[in-house]
Nucleic acid binder design. Structure first.
Lengths: 341, 341
DNA sequence: CTGAAAGCGCTTACAG
DNA sequence: CTGAAAGCGCTTACAG
């Protein structure tokens, strides 16, 4: 049979060994970090080039028991916060020579459970995980048996490392700001599927009460549509809000749509503030007041905690709490004009 | 040694077999789709539950030579178009029982090459790929040896299946629209790293010339910053543009920032139009005119082509060309008020 | 430094 | 329908 010039379906380490005139072990060492003499290394490298050899990662992982892979399980990649977080984590992983499996749960507990199982079946080295509220409220009986860092959403200090924003303080800052500007009927819009929403709401509630004001909040699906409906309803009430806090950028968009639809003007008819300093927030007139999150730092910190834990699983759980930064713009600032352009 | 109650580091198919009193082959069949009797299936399922067994995907892939995984290689996950595409592809993959490895090249040819190698090492079943312009201009000598569908960026019909927008027509629509509204000095802002940018520019150039107008275009890095700089420069020239076409939503943001910084008013001082119907585009006054892309359909089509090719690699290459839809808003419409709220 | 051998955890012909 | 055996492509003690 003249199959000596037929391209093999796939070239294995044995083929390379044959080409180089060495054993497979030597090829493996030349490609990895085993001790190897310079001449043999060169022979192997030449053979790799000739054959177009690419190692099979499944085989390597199976044998070495190292996946070189981390999972990133997020609730909603449509939320710009998570998009930015994904980039930060991916960059950090790339630096560290780790691959990333991205899993988008869409706030669906079933899909989340499926992805958690998948992480186990992939034998990942670790997982960075923004869990649903359902998960945090009813964690599975058996703890996850791979290194985990919770990110953005953690609930009270628990079993796992975590990196979160000081959500209560951030929301308190917004309420303080509104109060100082003279607003009194301040409503709150919070995502009902996240611990983040719960914490921001608590910050809102507590601060309102501290001022002797009645909190009026609404926990909704974290989409612009839900926010638009909720705010439209508020606006048609006898005593509509003078100001609204929205707990993420999607809710802020929904609130803004409702305000526009009602032909109200910012900030005179109503004031608005939200989270995440998206590019558009400074472009929409008169500029949106937001809490900027240090997303890059959150991603880096999560990867850093994860690598520490991968190196030593016995470490006690650590929590890193980062502060948001208030960016005051026209949507909440009747008196002054603090826009940057 | 009393290790009979020590939790094993990892439970394999052999452990399950022992628990169930059957052979590993039978466990494998019970978990897969082999022929199996009902009683044995039940025994195996019970044993799986007792042991908490999770199959090792690396081993399964190595042996079965099926990865059940597709790669998604994108240029910039910070561009909302690609974020939305990611969601669409992920959903389609989830439906099909496929996993997705997301790779973000950041328009970097080296990183792109690295990810292409990775796809090979992962032995993925296929790849959906938005290549850099560098890749399309200088494709590697040897074609990719896994099923590939090019998406968003394909260049002229070539070796691979592809799903693209009719970019030239879309840009022509925008120029037509500006021209009909009386604008004459119409400039164009195009990403210099993508075939998409090149094609949109061609549509712009050709249409301008067809009207007897001088095209004035600029190919820049696909970021808001670069666009802001470019537009600011134009605005300071003796004959500044009356209208600007921006070839993606990031460039549109940059253009808008420059316009704001110059205290110009839309659409009287200058008109703007771009691509991608992002949520914010209707909220920024007076609403941004854009070409909406059928992103969901693009993602589904790409996955569909990919699955066809995975099933039959000998298929001739197919190209699907989808049309954009113009959404006219205040940023380009001096006379009428077509805002939806 | 190098090679022969064993084995990671599965699946899949091959017999029965 | 079921089990024993082989083998996917690597890496890693183990000798030398």
């Amino acid at each position: 049979m003249d199959d000596n010039d037929a391209k093999p379906m796939t070239v294995s380490i044995k083929d390379v060994a044959r080409h180089a005139g060495v054993s497979p072990s030597t090829v493996s060492r030349a490609l990895g970090r085993g001790p190897i003499s310079e001449p043999l290394r060169q022979q192997v490298e030449a053979a790799v080039r000739e054959t177009g050899y690419r190692p099979n990662l499944s085989a390597r992982r199976l044998r070495s028991r190292e996946s070189g892979t981390v999972g990133l399980i997020l609730a909603d990649i449509g939320n710009p916060f998570f998009t930015a977080l994904t980039r930060a984590v991916e960059d950090a992983a790339y630096q560290a020579g780790l691959r990333v499996i991205l899993c988008n749960t869409g706030e669906d507990a079933e899909r989340e459970a499926m992805y958690l199982r998948l992480m186990q079946e992939e034998r990942v080295s670790g997982v960075i995980f923004a869990p649903t509220l359902a998960y945090l409220d009813h964690p599975p009986q058996s703890p996850l048996d791979f290194p985990v860092v919770l990110v953005d959403r953690a609930g009270p200090q628990g079993l796992y490392d975590s990196v979160v924003l000081d959500n209560e303080a951030a929301c308190a800052t917004l309420v303080d700001h509104f109060h100082a500007r003279g607003y009194r009927r301040i409503n709150g819009l919070f995502g009902k599927t996240s611990a983040t929403g719960v914490e921001r709401r608590r910050g809102y509630d507590d601060t309102m009460r501290a001022y002797g004001l009645e909190p009026k909040a609404c926990a909704i699906a974290p989409h612009a549509e839900a926010a638009e409906v909720a705010v439209s309803r508020w606006l048609s009430e006898p005593e509509p809000p003078e100001a609204i806090v929205a707990s993420n950028s999607l809710l802020l968009i929904g609130a803004l749509r409702a305000v526009r639809r009602a032909w109200l003007r910012l900030p005179d008819d109503i004031a608005l503030a939200g989270f995440d300093n998206e590019l558009w927030t400074e472009l929409v007139e008169p500029g949106m007041t937001v809490i900027e999150q240090p997303i890059e730092a959150i991603g880096r910190a999560a990867m850093s905690l994860l690598r520490d834990r991968m190196a030593d699983p016995t470490l006690p759980p650590r929590q890193i709490v980062l502060k948001g930064r208030a960016i005051i713009r026209g949507s909440s600032a009747p008196a002054l004009d603090e826009r940057s352009f």
